[in-house]
């Protein structure tokens, strides 16, 4: 049943080699995280985890989205529960700071906001284009996801009040 699988034209083979290079990089990046995931697992379970991570890297084609979320879930066992724990609230922007791009052309300027949520002060980076009109002392309603150790808090500002 597998007789036709490896019959490709030279052009197809070149493309396949390029794709394999990209995929190997994607696998490598995910496997670098694998060592921290496998703490406490038996040797066999560790190898199977490695196989599953490899399958992930090779099947989740939208890599920047897919593997990003995947890594988060793998690295933090309660990541899903954390994602579900969305806090809705409203509050005041205590501080707003503008940060210049470090490498103009490669990254973007951004704002960091300091907000008070349920008595807790949090800070988050936000995209300049969305939040440039938000000012200090302004009342906003927002959603807040605590992403734990896998990334800074994420704030989605719903509306100005």
């Amino acid at each position: 049943m597998f007789e036709n699988i490896n019959k490709f034209s030279p052009k197809q083979e070149t493309n396949i080699e390029k794709e394999i290079g990209e995929e190997e990089n994607r696998v490598k990046n995910l496997l670098e995280k694998e060592s921290s995931m496998s703490i406490g697992l038996s040797d066999k379970a560790r190898k199977i985890l490695r196989m599953m991570v490899t399958v992930s890297a090779l099947t989740l084609l939208p890599a920047t989205v897919g593997t990003g979320i995947y890594e988060m879930f793998r690295l933090e066992s309660n990541a899903i529960e954390r994602m579900e724990a969305v806090h809705n609230g409203s509050g005041v922007i205590l501080e707003k700071t503008y940060h210049k791009a470090v490498n103009p052309g490669f990254d973007n300027p951004y704002y960091s906001l300091k907000l008070e949520i349920n008595g807790k002060i949090i800070e988050a980076q936000v995209n300049e284009s969305i939040y440039k009109n938000v000012t200090q002392n302004e009342h906003v309603s927002f959603q807040y996801h605590d992403r734990g150790s896998t990334g800074g808090p994420e704030i989605i500002i719903n509306s100005l009040q």
Binding site: F2, E19, K28, L31, K44, K47, M51, T54, V55
Partner: peptide
């Protein structure tokens, strides 16, 4: 096969070892 054929060599060898020990691994994967 479409996924395994793209496995890097180290992972492919590990996969063969695992399957040699326990064929149920194929069903899990």
């Amino acid at each position: 096969v479409s996924v395994f054929s793209r496995f890097p060599e180290v992972e492919a060898k590990m996969l063969l070892e695992l399957i040699g020990e326990d064929n149920d691994i194929l069903h899990l994967l």
